[in-house]
Every structure is written in C-alpha cells, then in structure tokens.
C-alpha cells in the first residue's frame, strides 16, 4: 500500500469514525480484496471466505470507535479477519468438512495455456501447502508472508507470545521449503 493510499485510508477512517457511512463504503472498496484474499487463504472455501470478509467489515464498523490508531487500520482489519477465520476453522462442523476449494483451483484464466498450466499447478500447490498447516501456524504464515505484518503485530493480533509466533512462522517456512523442494520449484 502506497503512502498516498495510506493517507487516503486514514482520512476515510477518521470520517467513518464520526459516522460517515459513505466513507466507510469507500474503505470497504479499498480493502475488500486483501481481506478476502486473507480469509480465502485461511479457509480455502470461496463462499465462506466472502462471508467472513463481509463479517469482518461489519464487525470493524461496529467496533470502529475502539480503533485508536495505535496500529495501522489494515493491520487491525486483518486481525479481525484472521480471528474470524480461526474461529471458523475451529468450529466443529468445519473440522469434518474441510476440503480443497476446487472451484478456485480451476478458475485459472491466463491467455497462454502453458502459463495457465503452470499457474494452476502453483495455485493447487499453494493451496495444498496451506491446507497442511495447522490453524494458528496458517494464520501466522498468512499475516507475515502475504501481508508483511511484523512479528510484534502478529503477536498482538493473535494474543500469542512473540516466541510462539516466531516458532510458528519458522516451522511454516521450513515446510514451505520442503514443499517447494518436493515439487521441484526451487531455483
């Protein structure tokens, strides 16, 4: 996110905090894709990911007055989205029906068939890798790897000790390396 975008987001957040719904809708437009990407990487189910992302924005609106700006707004938003995703993964119903999102894997639309194949292989490989991570490890990996959050931010977001967060991430990257080696994706 560029400096200009950050400033724009801060302005919108200030307006939304005073009850401006139009400003909040603009925030939703700006942030919906990264939030959906996060929830989808966590739960790997298209409809659930979209629902969780919408839940995230509704909760963020309801709790907006408690956002003091100690962290970046997007960090705060990702925290809500991650915790909702973890709760979803922990739900008893979900534990028994976890599956790879085939729809997502098949929705590859590059113009070059060879690129399509490589992209499709990569996508299914990423999904397969994420699926193999336990919930908390997946959350830490997601926030750090895809959203560049610091370990301190993740520690605060998930309410886990800094050492625990680092251990989760280290283990996840080790697995990622092993996964890439097994797939022959290393340079």
């Amino acid at each position: 996110m560029t400096l200009e975008t950050n400033r724009q987001l801060e302005d919108l957040v200030a307006k939304a905090k005073s009850g401006n719904k139009a400003a909040y809708s603009e925030i939703v437009r700006m942030m919906m894709r990264p939030v959906i990407a996060l929830t989808h990487r966590m739960v790997r189910d298209r409809e659930a990911a979209i629902d969780l992302a919408q839940d995230t924005f509704v909760t963020a609106w309801e709790k907006l007055s408690s956002f003091r700006g100690d962290s970046k707004f997007e960090t705060w938003l990702f925290t809500i989205a991650t915790n909702k995703s973890i709760n979803y993964l922990n739900s008893a119903a979900r534990r028994t029906t976890e599956r790879l999102d085939d729809v997502t894997v098949s929705r590859v639309s590059n113009s070059n068939p060879e690129d399509d194949m490589l992209q499709g292989e990569l996508r299914s490989g990423v999904m397969e890798f994420m699926k193999g991570l336990p919930g908390q490890q997946r959350a830490v990996f997601n926030l750090r790897f895809y959203h560049q959050m610091t370990f301190e931010e993740i520690s605060n977001a998930l309410g886990k000790a800094l050492g625990t967060v680092k251990t989760h991430y280290r283990e996840a990257v080790k697995k990622l390396r092993e996964h890439a080696l097994a797939k022959g994706w290393t340079p």
Binding site: K21, S25, V28, R29, M32, R33, P34, V35, I36, A37, H40, R41, R46, A49, I50, A53, Q54, F57, V58, W61, D101, T104, R107, V108, Q119, L122, R123, V126, F129, F145, Y146, L176, A180, W185
Partner: peptide, 24 residues
C-alpha cells in the same frame, strides 16, 4: 517470490459493488 506470485483469484473475482452493498 514464487508463492507470493499466486494472486488470490477469489478476491479478484468478487463483484466489488455487490460486496459493498452486502456490507452496507
């Protein structure tokens, strides 16, 4: 870098206005 290049297609496929309307 290779893993990060996998953009999330679901987030890209969602209709923005419909999503925003749902939240609103």
């Amino acid at each position: 870098a290779r893993f990060r290049a996998d953009s999330d297609l679901v987030s890209e496929s969602v209709d923005v206005e419909r999503f925003v309307e749902g939240v609103e």
